[in-house]
Each structure stands twice: as C-alpha cells, then as structure tokens.
Nucleic acid binder design. Structure first.
Lengths: 154, 154
DNA sequence: TCAAAAATGAAAACCATTTTCAGTTACAGA
DNA sequence: TCTGTAACTGAAAATGGTTTTCATTTTTGA
C-alpha cells in the first residue's frame, strides 16, 4: 500500500520519457504532473482541466496523446470502472492490483502474489498463455461511506 | 469450466425476462439467442450482425437496449479487453472469473475462491467496502497460439 | 544560429452509443 | 378469440468521447 511521493514519481516519469526518446515539452510535463500528484483515476477531460492550470495553452488532443505514450511506457494504466471505462491512473511499480472507489475514483494498490499460482493452474490446464491480468476490487472507500451516510444517500 | 448448453441457457434467460416483467419479443429473443450460443465475448455490432440472421428487421438500438436489460438481470456481463472495452458475454452462474483470449475473444470461466480471503484482508485493512470485483486473465488460447505459429505471426 | 524533426492545438472527422418519436407488437382481460 | 393499452420497436437525429488532419510552433542537435 506504499505510495511514492509525487515528486519522485514525476522524476521517474521524466526520465522514462527521456530514455524513451520523447521530448519533455511543457505540455507533456503538465499532464505528467497531474497524474503524478493524483491518487485518483481520472478521465481525459478531468486531466485536461487540471493540467491547464499548469499550462493554459494545452489542448485536449495532447492529453490523449500523452496518455497513450504513458500507457506505452508502462507509467500509467487504464482503470475500468463500471460506470466509466476510460480512466487513467499512475502505475505503482510492483503492485499490480487495484482497489478503486467508485465514488471518488481514488485508487489504492495492493499485491496478491498468491495469484501467481492460480494463474499458473488455469493456464496449465487449458493451454492458455496468460499475458496480462486484471484484478480490480471496486467499492466504496471509508471516507465516501462516511460522507454518504451523512448525506443520507445510499 | 463447465458450460451449460445454449438451449438451457436460453430457457433460463427467457424465464428471467418473464419474471422480470419484460416481454419476450422476437427482437429480444434473437439477441438472447446469439449470446446464448456464443462462447465469445462479442461487441454490440457483432451481436447485431448475428442476430439479424434470426430477425432481419432488428435494429441496433434494440441490441443495446436488450444488452442493458441483460446486464441488469445479471445474465450477461461486460468484458473489458485491452483493445476493446465494450464486449458482452454470458454470465456463467457461480463462476466469477474470466479467461479471455485477446485474439478470438473466446471466454472461459473459472472460480478462484481463495480470492475471498484476499478481498476480506484488503477490505478490513482499509475500511474499504468491496462491492464488486473483476478478475480477468487475458492472453492467447491454445488454438490461437497454434494458428499464429502457422501463419508466422507473433 | 540554423535546419530538421518532433510536437502542438484548432477544427473537422469519426464512430459507438443514446435519445427522440411515431408506428408496431405482446399480452392481460373481456 | 378479440381488443385496448402499455411496452416495445426501429429509423433518424443528436450526443459526446476520441482520433485524424494539417498548418504552425517548439525542441534539439549540429
């Protein structure tokens, strides 16, 4: 459940862009910064809104392009909520699984290494080659539960 | 890994529509039939194409509406592949987890009940209330692997 | 400083999904 | 079996998120 600081994350990402042969433009850095600072899974529009605080001339297209590059570099991942299927969150190295709050979109990482065995068993049995896996637990975080009770909502 | 026959599935689904207060129109039955018969996760357009064989006057809108009802009734579920995020597959009662072939879209179900403990642990630790979970293993099925080798592709 | 390549943003295109609405159909009750 | 009505349907239009296009700007290496 550890989280690296947003500065460390940003530094790591800048380095990843550089060594991937991508230029570090101010537009890109603005997008990186938003995701580095956020503990939520955000959609492109929300990232756009926040990044424009840093870079007012930023275009939405560049947000999409930068996100795509981040996915390619393994820096961010798509998060698939029931309601909305195209949110992006920072990748936390070594922690593959996600706990997603359906209300606030905040994301926690955890690792369940016992899954390796399960995946091996399933694969071996069927001749299937597992290339990727998704384990996402979706629900309500403690804070949102409290807030919803206060508001009388379900 | 058991699969009920498509006839049994269809009968179950008809009953579910009935007892849910939904009329059994020929348009709906055409959509139900396609998913009942398929072992793949299909997108709306493909379901539309196949269902028109049974009901040529069918409209795409009705496919979307019927799929939505099936989700509400718990008869089908959305499958989220990396490439395409809006496919639908039949729900296999009691088998919550999916093995999805990224090439042919075929779907296998399995249950990993050891996950319950993991989910409890994560939830208890953080005050998070888990409402839903997704475990999908994505990769290549044995058949597609063989076919791809034959074609010389990766 | 300069040229080439990469990256950008605005506008247009695209396409899956949803909404609207007038006509059709299933089905409960007579 | 017939009938009235609410549920349902399909065509067309609207919507909205994402991608493409392209002329301009920026970055970077020489």
């Amino acid at each position: 459940m550890a989280a690296s600081s947003s500065e460390a994350r940003l530094a790591r990402w800048r380095a990843a862009f550089k060594s991937g042969g991508y230029r570090l433009t101010s537009a890109r850095v603005a997008v990186l910064r938003v995701l580095a600072e956020s503990q939520q899974a955000l959609d492109a529009t929300r990232i756009f809104d926040r990044a424009r605080v840093y870079e007012p001339r930023l275009g939405l297209v560049t947000v999409y392009r930068t996100l795509e590059t981040m996915l390619a570099l393994g820096l961010a991942q798509k998060v698939h909520c029931p309601a909305q299927c195209a949110r992006y969150a920072a990748v936390e190295p070594g922690h593959n699984h996600l706990l997603v709050c359906r209300r606030c979109g905040r994301v926690w990482y955890f690792s369940g290494d016992d899954l390796g065995a399960l995946m091996q068993a399933v694969a071996g049995e069927s001749g299937f080659r597992v290339e990727d896996h998704w384990l996402q637990l979706i629900g309500l975080c403690a804070r949102c539960r409290a807030e919803m009770e206060t508001e009388g909502a379900v």
